[in-house]
Simulated scan of single mutants.
Amino acid sequence: MAEKILRSDKIVITRKDANFDRACDEAYRHAVSMLGIDEDGHATRVKGWDRSSCCIRVVFERYEHIASMVGHEYNYYFRGEAVK
Rank of each mutant, 00 (worst) to 15 (best):
M34T: 03
A31L: 11
H30C: 15
G48R: 05
V46A: 03
K47W: 00
L35G: 04
T44F: 10
G36N: 07
A43G: 09
D40Y: 14
C55W: 05
A43I: 03
W49F: 01
I13H: 02
T44L: 12
W49N: 00
K47N: 04
A18D: 13
V32C: 02
H42E: 12
E61D: 10
C55S: 09
H65N: 13
D17G: 12
M34E: 08
K47D: 05
L35E: 06
M1G: 06
K4R: 07
K84M: 02
R29M: 14
E61F: 02
R62V: 07
V32K: 05
T14Y: 05
L6C: 07
I11W: 09
K84E: 03
A31K: 10
G41T: 06
R15A: 05
Y74V: 09
K16W: 13
R79V: 14
S52E: 09
V58H: 03
R62M: 11
V46Q: 01
A23V: 14
D25N: 12
C24F: 10
V70A: 07
Y28D: 06
V12G: 00
I56L: 05
R57Y: 09
V46H: 01
R62C: 08
S68N: 03
A31G: 08
V59T: 12
H30E: 15
E61A: 06
Y76R: 11
D40T: 11
H65K: 12
V83K: 11
R22L: 15
Y76V: 11
E39V: 11
D50L: 00
G36F: 06
G36R: 03
K16D: 14
S8P: 00
V70M: 02
I5S: 00
R22P: 04
R29E: 12
N75E: 10
A43Y: 03
V59L: 12
E39R: 12
D38K: 09
C55M: 06
T14K: 13
G48V: 08
M69C: 01
R15W: 01
T14R: 08
E64C: 00
G48T: 07
E64K: 02
M34C: 06
I56V: 12
S33V: 05
D38Q: 10
D40S: 08
T14I: 07
V32M: 08
D17W: 08
I5N: 01
F60W: 11
D21M: 12
A27E: 06
M69A: 04
R79N: 15
A18E: 13
F60A: 14
I37H: 09
R45N: 07
D9N: 03
